[in-house]
């Protein structure tokens, strides 16, 4: 329970800090309240999806490995490359250009947070995923509808393998690149009415099953 309290408490405080920043910008007229609300909804979608991944993975880890209590994300998600990343966050080293640079950045963030280096890495990944989702939401809202935009964000964060968007490493940076590209090129897409896909519920169910399967494969060391 301690690790879950830590995870939830840290995100809650960060949410308050970000909400205050948004409120300040609105008060001095640098941001419209509607924009702040939209950014808040995207943040809730991103963190809500992350909470779903972490809770599900924690439950699977707890059940499968008989862990003494809810495990921390660092304990649960420990593949070879992730282990290397965690070590690099604590003691930065250039083992790869992109991952190495991200490790240095995460280390720097962790230094500010009372030497919580791995947390710094997680927050960096979450930050990049959040910015990507904001770009995605903005373009989808413009081309389709506000509702379709939030659905698109949730879908992106809950697709099979989306767990890697929250873990330290290069996937969040790749997602940021793709989202930026879509944002720029998406202007050329014609506006259209967002229609539900046929068998939408079945596809969502399938996506959920595969997402859980990938998360399980990650925590059991199969990937």
């Amino acid at each position: 329970m301690g690790e879950f309290c830590r995870f939830a408490g840290e995100r809650l405080m960060l949410l308050i800090v970000l909400a205050l920043m948004g409120a300040f910008l609105c008060e001095i007229g640098r941001m419209r309240p509607e924009t702040a609300r939209r950014l808040g909804r995207v943040l809730l979608c991103v963190w809500g999806a992350e909470a779903a991944h972490v809770l599900l993975s924690g439950l699977m880890y707890f059940t499968v490995y008989g862990n003494d209590g809810f495990p921390s994300p660092e304990t649960m998600f420990r593949t070879g490359s992730l282990e290397k990343m965690y070590d690099a966050l604590r003691t930065p080293a250039f083992f790869a250009p992109v991952s190495g640079a991200l490790a240095w950045l995460g280390h720097g963030i962790g230094k500010i947070l009372f030497n919580q280096y791995v947390l710094g890495g997680f927050l960096l990944s979450e930050g990049m995923t959040y910015v990507s989702c904001c770009l995605l939401e903005a373009r989808l809202r413009e081309r389709f509808s506000p509702r379709a935009a939030l659905q698109g964000v949730l879908l992106a964060c809950l697709l099979p393998g989306a767990i890697f968007l929250y873990l330290p490493g290069w996937p969040p940076l790749l997602f940021l690149g793709i989202a930026a590209l879509l944002f720029v090129l998406g202007k050329r897409l014609p506006k259209k009415e967002g229609k539900a896909l046929p068998c939408e519920e079945y596809l969502l169910l399938l996506s959920g099953i595969l997402t859980a399967a990938v998360d399980y494969a990650l925590i059991s060391g199969r990937i």
Partner: peptide
């Protein structure tokens, strides 16, 4: 003085 996340985790384990 320690990171608040650690404080919360410690409080939970103290229970």
């Amino acid at each position: 003085t320690q990171w608040l996340g650690k404080t919360l985790a410690d409080q939970a384990s103290m229970t």
